[in-house]
Simulated scan of single mutants.
Amino acid sequence: MYINLHTHHPSESMHVKEIINMHASLYPESTNLNQFHSIGIHPWDIKDDHSIHVLEKWAQHPKVLAIGECGLDKSKGPDLTIQQEVFIQHIKLSEKLKLPIIIHCVKAYSEIIKLRKDLRPKQAWIFHGFNASRETMEQALRQGFYFSLGKALLKSNSKASQSLLFIPHNRLFLETDDDPQLSIISIYEKASELLKLETPQLKKVIQDNFKRLFNVN
């Protein structure tokens, strides 16, 4: 079984177990409730308080495994202060429901790492689409973060492909994110090549991480 931690495009493959991202305002009308989901408000989509109330309601559905994606983005979206206020609401809900958070982060790693250090949450925080330096990864690792890597691994000179070699296996996930043409199998094959692991070994590592973090077989 391949685990795809974060996708916007369900594969419908019997060989893939995935967490499908849903925006709070769209849940559950356009959602297959038999699949696993994360639910949150992307920082680009912050508009009003209505989505927060919907988020609180549907995050309690048994097929919702994580809060998010949510986070901070310095390149797009409302003022960072507003983004942080909404992100903190997600953090509080994560703690209340005892669900991990899947985090969108663009040019704001230091701010999010500091938030975790200051707030000391009990639930896991996962940087999705991680593509930052080994130094940033190690700073985040010291605060207990997990890392999900995707398309950037296919670029040999990417920060993700270099950082991957130093991420502890028990903190690692893989994903396809929002690319409908990207196969999770290709991400596993590339990660296996970079890590010098057989693909079945890597699948076992990530299956174990998934089971431990989300309590799902």
Rank of each mutant, 00 (worst) to 15 (best):
G77R: 02
I67R: 04
E69K: 01
L72C: 07
E56W: 02
I3C: 00
L174V: 00
F145I: 14
D73F: 06
Y27V: 13
K98A: 12
L55Q: 01
F130H: 07
D118P: 09
I88E: 06
Y146T: 08
I67G: 00
H23R: 09
H90R: 03
R116W: 08
S156R: 07
D208I: 08
L153T: 04
T199F: 02
D79L: 13
R142S: 15
I41E: 05
V54W: 07
F130M: 12
I82Q: 10
E189K: 08
K159L: 10
T7P: 00
G71W: 02
K190Q: 12
Y188C: 04
F145M: 13
P180T: 03
Q201V: 13
I3V: 12
R212S: 12
G129T: 03
D118C: 09
H169M: 05
T176R: 00
P78D: 13
S163G: 10
L65R: 03
A124V: 12
A152G: 07
R171W: 04
E198S: 10
R142W: 09
E189C: 01
E95Q: 14
H37A: 11
R134P: 06
I20T: 09
N217T: 06
D118Y: 11
Q181R: 15
I3L: 00
H128T: 11
K96Y: 08
N131H: 09
I82M: 14
R212F: 10
L141C: 11
E18W: 05
K47A: 14
A160M: 10
I3A: 07
K204A: 14
K155M: 08
N215E: 14
H53S: 12
A59W: 01
S30C: 12
F130Q: 06
A132G: 09
H9I: 00
W44P: 07
S30E: 14
S11Q: 10
S186D: 14
D178V: 06
N32C: 11
I126A: 00
L80F: 04
H8S: 02
M22A: 12
L141T: 04
K159M: 04
L99K: 15
F36I: 04
P180H: 11
C70T: 15
R120N: 13
I167E: 00
E95W: 06
I88M: 13
Q181K: 13
P10I: 08
Q143V: 05
F210N: 03
I206E: 00
I184V: 14
K190C: 00
H169C: 01
M14R: 14
L194F: 05
C70S: 09
K17Q: 00
V205K: 01
A152R: 01
R212C: 10
A160S: 12
N170S: 07
K74G: 05
R120L: 09
V216G: 03
P10V: 07
